[in-house]
Every structure is written in structure tokens, then in C-alpha cells.
């Protein structure tokens, strides 16, 4: 058990962070807090990818000495590129979600999801009558 924790502490931290974000996403009623939970989940994924790419004793893939390029010197560059992709997608989805939340707030004057659902239902019933 102790060996497992010492060998995988970054991955364990990433899984726990993912759980915290997922719990936030499910349990919070405030739309902005839900989006914060989504961002925590994204952060967990970056941590996981960066940890998977790391190798002890190797340096970041930006060489200073251009004559000696061997695969034994540098860490895996692919997770770095994937983290970049993840950050961009996370920024985009967060902006879109916040815009939707702002739109909902302007219409119903509340960010609570329960209240928004009931208010919209009531609005629909008013329209039918």
C-alpha cells in the first residue's frame, strides 16, 4: 500500500482532484460554482498528463545544446502538447458556459439551478394560458 502511494502520488492526487471537481459539478446548485468544479476536473487531467510524461533525471524538451539530441536526455514531449490542447478547450468551454450562465441570470435574476428550472416551468405554463 505504502509503495503504491509513493510510486503513484501524482496520479492519486489527480484522481482525488477529479473527484472533488466532479462532486462540485454534481452537488453545487450555483451555476458558476458548477463551472469551477468543471475547471478543477480539467486541472486534474493536466496534472495526470504531466505526471505521465515525466521521467526522473531528464529535462524539459527545449535543448540548449543543439548538437547532442538523444532521447535519453529529454522527457516525453507528447503529454505537454496534449496539456496545451486541454487548456485551450477548457478556456473555450468555460467562457461558453459562463456566457450561458450570464444569459440565464439576466432572464431569471438567479444563478440557482433549482430556481431557474421552476421559474422556466412556470413561465411556460403562463404562456399556455
Amino acid at each position: 500500500m505504502w509503495d503504491f502511494i509513493m510510486n503513484h502520488y501524482y496520479e492519486i492526487a489527480a484522481v482525488i482532484l477529479f473527484g472533488i471537481g466532479f462532486m462540485n459539478l454534481l452537488v453545487q446548485r450555483n451555476l458558476i460554482k458548477k463551472l469551477i468544479g468543471l475547471n478543477i476536473m480539467d486541472t486534474a487531467i493536466y496534472l495526470f498528463l504531466a505526471a505521465r510524461g515525466f521521467v526522473f533525471g531528464r529535462i524539459a524538451p527545449v535543448p540548449q545544446d543543439l548538437t547532442n539530441l538523444s532521447a535519453e536526455t529529454f522527457i516525453n514531449p507528447i503529454p505537454s502538447g496534449l496539456v496545451l490542447t486541454g487548456i485551450v478547450v477548457s478556456v473555450s468551454t468555460t467562457a461558453f458556459g459562463l456566457a450561458l450562465a450570464l444569459k440565464l441570470y439576466r432572464r431569471y435574476r438567479t444563478l440557482n439551478l433549482d430556481e431557474i428550472l421552476v421559474l422556466s416551468k412556470k413561465e411556460r405554463e403562463d404562456k399556455k394560458q
Binding site: F4, N7, H8, Y9, Y10, E11, I12, V15, A51, R52, G53, F54, V55, F56, P61, L69, S70, A71, T73, F74, N76, P77, I78, P79
Partner: peptide, 24 residues
């Protein structure tokens, strides 16, 4: 996560010929 190779090791499946090609 338990089934994954330990953190920071060299002989992991992700350090394959693709990343070697990119670096070299």
C-alpha cells in the same frame, strides 16, 4: 492507476518510438 507503471520511470509504454522520433 494501480495497474500503471510507477511515476517517473523510463520503461513505460508512453515513452515509445513516437516520442523518440520527435526528440531525435
Amino acid at each position: 492507476t494501480i495497474q500503471m507503471p510507477p511515476f517517473g520511470e523510463v520503461d513505460v509504454p508512453t515513452n515509445n518510438e513516437v516520442s523518440e522520433k520527435y526528440i531525435e
